[in-house]
Nucleic acid binder design. Sequence first.
DNA 1: ATGATGATGAAATTCAATTTCATAATATTC
DNA 2: GAATATTATGAAATTGAATTTCATCATCAT
Lengths: 152, 152
Amino acid sequence: MRQLLERIDREILTGGGKRSRSRAAVIERFFLERHHVTIEELTRSVRESAPRVGAVTVYRTLKLLERLGYAKELDFGEGAKRYESNLASHHDHLVCRKCGTVIEFENRDIEKLQERVTRRHGFQPTSHRLEIYGFCRKCAPGKAAEEVRCPR
Amino acid sequence: MRQLLERIDREILTGGGKRSRSRAAVIERFFLERHHVTIEELTRSVRESAPRVGAVTVYRTLKLLERLGYAKELDFGEGAKRYESNLASHHDHLVCRKCGTVIEFENRDIEKLQERVTRRHGFQPTSHRLEIYGFCRKCAPGKAAEEVRCPR
DNA sequence: ATGATGATGAAATTCAATTTCATAATATTC
DNA sequence: GAATATTATGAAATTGAATTTCATCATCAT
Ligand SMILES: [Mn+2]
Ligand SMILES: [Mn+2]
Ligand SMILES: [Zn+2]
Ligand SMILES: [Zn+2]
């Protein structure tokens, strides 16, 4: 952890940036988070230990971490984006539409097939997103309130 | 086409709705679109034949078509959402980060593997989204302006 | 035609995200 | 250890897509 923070600090320095307490607070909290967090959630968390940090700094710091390759931006269609550490290996997500639980999975076969698809189209892939929406074990009762068709 | 429009009209009627000229104009234009359109693009298109139609009606009509199962909402992270007809069979997308070209593909093997993944997690899937971002054949020169690391 | 209810669209509102800008913090130079 | 230069901060303002409001219009049933 210490190692990581120092390494990021060094990268920022190298890039012409300066150290900052607020940013350090955001970065530390971010990597302590267990789940995929929104800016709002992370801001609340940061303020427990550094109450004066503004949400704008959280926005800026996460964009920075993303540019440096340490964070990943996610969008589960909730309105606000979520972020996760990009230190672990690549994975995709199962998102429960009822309770919001997110299950992570990794499937090399799917990734292989994706590569084949892109090759077939002369497409040079740089990233992808695969999200499967539905109901998790807890939230999948016999019949969920599925398709209610109504014009309004 | 005529068939489709009448069928949708009937469904709306059944659901307690009424016919409307503005909405009909939006629906007709929508199904004539070849590409994935934003609300703004579709509104411009609609106004060529029905100049008084407001953007709000386009928003509302697309939400309606989505609820009825005739349209699909897409989000390629551009800020504005895109919509496509849901009449054709399911497919996923390759999105060029440079020129914006969208290539559609269909891969039964990937879908099968997805089902296996969800089953393994006791997850009941209702939909998914798979998008692969990168550079299309035209836009993939030896080295694209890939990773420029800079703290700001 | 009349009345009831749905649909419309301009304007107002919402809300995440970004920009602005005066001030504060940090690095560099002497 | 100042003085100076440059970056970072955060409150407030701004943006922009999407939604809501509401007075008015259109459509349907009687
Ligand atoms: Mn994850
Ligand atoms: Mn498509
Ligand atoms: Zn759930
Ligand atoms: Zn391209």
